[in-house]
């Protein structure tokens, strides 16, 4: 039995590694010669971290260099954003960020960097669908009923979210705007506690990532109304899309992309994009994303052009919504 225990982890703990002091001059042609750091702006174990670790392995294989995931948390991901914006433009520090990249300028008026000017985009990774869900004994049974109910009871309905700037808050804002009501928002510190109170019936409804809600919907612990993507989600075949159910304006996904500092040579960006493309075709990556209720983006979106277009479009979408709602990150 003893033979079956992978000792690699022990070895990596005891190995003396001075690679961290490396860095050095970048020759785009010979990139990568060194370990690459993939900076995750959220905690280890979160959905974005999971996506990062999923793609890191096949990307590293393709590039022929190690990729190390580093979690730099704080201030809605803007600490990590600032770190990579200021990093050497040699391709050895890569940022993965989600929809928050496009909302940061509106949420943080004193943001020290510009998502469009201080970064080069590498490509989109995945677009995690969201679901509109409610406590199990909430009256409305369908999305249409929910819209009517919310309009009639705008004073008493409570809308939970996972905190300022979280995807669930953004989706909530979109719902309020689409329905034309101003609801009582109940913020939580992350999706876990919000979902707990939803299951426990303390709050009425919310909108959050499939990753977090799918298993609860399947088990009947919460009520699912719709998914917020143009296409239905495989794991939740019974749920219509918001467009089908009458709220076409509520279309939102937690999209992820890779970024490098703005001065990074194009040759390096091309290599990273190519590696990302290979990683997203990896069967293991596709399967694992499946358990998260998502899929890799189609191949044509794994390009800097498509990524930049998405980023611009999303900044234009969210900036007025956030400004109108008066929400601020600081």
């Amino acid at each position: 039995m003893r033979r079956h225990i992978p000792l690699a982890s022990l070895a990596c703990l005891t190995m003396l590694s001075l690679a961290a002091c490396g860095g050095g001059d970048a020759d785009p042609a010979s990139y990568p010669e060194d370990e690459i750091t993939l900076v995750v702006p959220f905690s280890a174990g979160g959905p974005t971290d999971t996506v990062a670790r999923l793609i890191a392995e096949p990307m590293a294989e393709e590039l022929g260099a190690d990729i190390v995931v580093q979690n730099v948390e704080g201030a809605g991901g803007t600490i990590a954003g600032g770190q990579v914006a200021d990093a050497d433009a040699d391709g050895y520090e890569v940022l993965i960020h989600h929809i928050g990249m496009s909302t940061a300028p509106a949420l943080y008026p004193d943001l020290a960097y510009s998502p469009l000017e201080d970064f080069k985009t590498v490509g989109l990774v995945t677009d995690v669908p969201m679901t509109i869900v409610a406590r199990p004994d909430f009256e409305p049974e369908t999305l249409e009923e929910l819209v009517t109910y919310v309009k009639e009871n705008a004073d008493t309905v409570t809308l939970a979210n996972a905190g300022v700037g979280a995807a669930s808050q953004l989706c909530g804002l979109l719902i309020e705007q689409a329905v034309g009501v101003d609801l009582t928002e109940v913020p939580y510190d992350g999706t876990g506690p919000a979902l707990t109170d939803l299951v426990g019936g303390q709050v009425d409804f919310m909108c959050d990532q499939t990753t977090n809600t799918a298993s609860q919907i399947q088990a009947g612990e919460i009520k699912g109304y719709a998914v917020t993507t143009p296409e239905p989600v495989e794991a939740l075949p019974d749920l219509p899309t918001t467009a089908e159910a009458g709220l076409p304006d509520v279309e939102v996904g937690v999209w992820h992309g890779l970024y490098v500092p703005a001065d990074t040579p194009d040759e390096i960006v091309e290599k990273l994009t190519a590696a990302l493309e290979v990683a997203l075709e990896d069967q293991n990556v596709i399967d694992q994303m499946g358990t998260l209720g998502t899929t890799p983006v189609p191949a044509e979106d794994v390009t800097p052009e498509a990524h930049t277009a998405k980023l611009e479009e999303q900044i234009d979408l969210w900036t007025p919504i956030i400004e109108e709602s008066g929400v601020t990150g600081g």
Binding site: S43, A44, G45, G46, P47, D49, T50, R53, L54, G190, G192, P193, L195, T196, V199, T211, A214, S215, Q216, Q218, A219, E221, D287, Q288, T291, L292
Partner: peptide, 30 residues
């Protein structure tokens, strides 16, 4: 709460949820 409802109530539990997901298991009531 984590094992019977799939709900993390503790920072360490949230990390565990991540570990579950990385292993291809979505923690939930089932």
């Amino acid at each position: 709460p984590l094992l019977s409802l799939g709900l993390p109530t503790h920072p360490v539990m949230a990390l565990l949820v991540g570990a579950f997901i990385i292993q291809g298991i979505v923690p939930g009531p089932q």
